[in-house]
Amino acid sequence: MQDKWQDESRFHRYLLGQLSEDEQILVEQEYFASDQSFEQLLALEDELTYRWLSGDLAPAERIGFERRFLSTETGKRHAEFARALESMGAKRYRPRWRPVWAALAAAAMLLFVSAMLFRQNRELRTQLAHVVTPQPITVAFLLTPGLTRGTEELRRIEVPAQADVLRLEMTLRRSVPPGATFRAALHTADGREVWSQGGLSKPIVEVPARILLPDEYDLLLQSVAPTGTVDDLGGYHFALSRR
């Protein structure tokens, strides 16, 4: 097995289009088969973008990078994001070094303030004990399209009684136009619409659990192109029960 350095060098050259066709195919077979290799390539690609922004790539590398990555919309968007992250100056968030005396003074002040707060806190805690707002409990499920009512295979979703929100992620069978949004509508078995939402950036919905009684449901998904064209993406049929 090749060592890690060789792997990295090969992956690096792959990303810059510097391998022969046969070598490229070997790298591709590797990342199609291995999650680890795929993620390593994604991380290397990401780092190349930052090195390119910093002008750290050799001329041949820079040309290879620009031809390979900046010829697609995805690549351009990623570069813009990287530029923004760099220009934002992550330095702003960096904890600054402080002299020892300043740290000691801060510690003393902290101790004093803590003592004051401790007293107040004890009183407030008694008053607020029963006013704390609980976090909503969300349960998530992945739905696949294509199943229709009446088929034997039916997606069964068991929702805990204490759940507040049902998060449903829908797998798409095909692409949608760039910039399209999604609209989802939930229908009961008798065709009654119980919930709907439009303007979704992803095929993911969060439905209040309280509106869903044990029943069979159809979640109908549509895409809405920037031109306004609506396209049916299919239905996601499932049976919901409570526990």
């Binding site: 990303l15 690549g75 696949t144």
Partner: peptide
Amino acid sequence: RERAAEAYEQIRRRLLKFFEWRGSANPEE
């Protein structure tokens, strides 16, 4: 079926990157 759906997403992701890394302007198609 659930694992299959995840595998489908993984494969699609790899295909998109494959075509992108091979210089295609329309990897989705």
